[in-house]
Simulated assay, not measured.
Amino acid sequence: MRRAFNGQPLLWLLSPAALLLAWALAANSGAFPVQLLVPPQAVYHSFTELLVSGELREHLVASLSRLGLGFGIGAVAGMAFGTAMALSRNVEAFCGPLFHCVRQIPSIALIPMFILFFGVDDVFKVLIVTKAAFFPVALAACEGVRAIPRAYFEVASLYRLPLRSLLTEVALPAAAPTLLTGLRIGLSRAWMVLVATELLAGDIGLGQLIEMSRQMLRIDLVMVGVLLIGLIGFCLEGGFHLLEKRLLRWKPL
């Protein structure tokens, strides 16, 4: 099935084309008010207007910069913490219960508290994204390092590898498959949480573009934001998948 799918890349376009056709037929049928279900050509026209005016670029830069900064901090901190919790029983005993408790709290549930402490500026949004990325990455790093055969560490101890070499040359490479999965999940969650955060509080970003358009009853602009969010999420997932395949060329499919 995988080979057949890879041999027919045009199948990727089949479901989007079918959805676009169904959307156009439903919008032009007159069964729905035009204010509620705008046709695809109107959405495309609004997209080009936003693109030419430069407003769309501002929203994209704001959202992607918050995502990059928050995910970067959360991923690095998550890898460090998860590895430490896997290698040290003291860290696991001291931090484990709190870690597993806090990671069950949805990031969206923390938005009111974060607003009270940090306001509605970018700091608040970056911290929410950091939280959303930190826990999946930390959990994946912890489970990945724990799954490494003990013989690896015995050989490292025999050669008296320093801690830095143990981490960079043994632990993290051996845990790479699980860790990369955690990074991909963390990136996806961070993107969804960021959009939700921008919907609730903010003055710029794709989420805020949707919210302002909703208040003005501009469903065409709402659809532009929704489609861009889905497309960016798809590109992030696909790009990360390609990176994973490149880094794990040794792993059998």
Results as ranks from 00 to 15, higher is better:
184 R>C: 00
251 K>D: 10
81 F>E: 09
103 R>L: 07
116 L>W: 12
159 Y>L: 14
21 L>Q: 03
166 L>S: 11
170 V>K: 02
220 D>G: 05
240 F>T: 03
236 L>T: 00
142 C>S: 13
58 E>L: 14
210 I>V: 15
249 R>K: 10
30 G>M: 06
201 A>W: 03
166 L>D: 09
68 G>R: 04
78 G>I: 02
210 I>F: 08
82 G>P: 07
222 V>I: 15
201 A>L: 07
83 T>F: 08
192 M>K: 12
237 E>D: 15
170 V>E: 13
232 I>L: 12
44 Y>R: 12
178 T>N: 13
135 F>R: 04
224 V>P: 05
87 L>Y: 09
153 F>G: 09
105 I>V: 15
72 G>K: 02
180 L>T: 05
81 F>D: 03
164 R>F: 13
216 M>P: 00
250 W>T: 01
48 T>C: 10
5 F>R: 11
70 G>L: 04
209 L>I: 02
38 V>D: 10
228 L>W: 03
62 A>G: 01
74 G>F: 05
223 M>R: 01
188 S>V: 00
232 I>V: 11
141 A>N: 08
69 L>M: 13
213 S>C: 06
247 L>E: 04
13 L>G: 14
214 R>E: 06
92 E>G: 00
155 V>Y: 11
20 L>F: 14
146 R>T: 01
101 C>M: 15
249 R>Q: 12
126 V>I: 15
197 T>D: 07
232 I>Q: 06
85 M>C: 03
92 E>V: 01
195 V>Y: 05
26 A>S: 12
37 L>V: 14
123 V>N: 12
11 L>K: 01
47 F>E: 07
125 K>D: 02
147 A>N: 10
65 S>P: 04
201 A>K: 12
205 G>Y: 04
246 R>V: 05
17 A>Q: 03
129 V>G: 00
82 G>E: 06
185 I>A: 11
225 G>R: 00
136 P>S: 04
131 K>V: 15
193 V>S: 12
19 L>V: 15
246 R>E: 05
171 A>T: 09
87 L>D: 10
8 Q>L: 13
35 Q>W: 12
33 P>T: 08
236 L>K: 05
155 V>M: 14
137 V>I: 15
107 S>V: 15
97 P>E: 09
175 A>G: 10
99 F>V: 06
156 A>Y: 11
35 Q>A: 11
120 V>N: 06
171 A>S: 13
204 I>W: 01
32 F>K: 01
136 P>F: 05
160 R>S: 14
2 R>F: 13
134 F>C: 07
163 L>E: 14
167 L>Q: 12
169 E>K: 14
222 V>R: 04
253 L>Y: 11
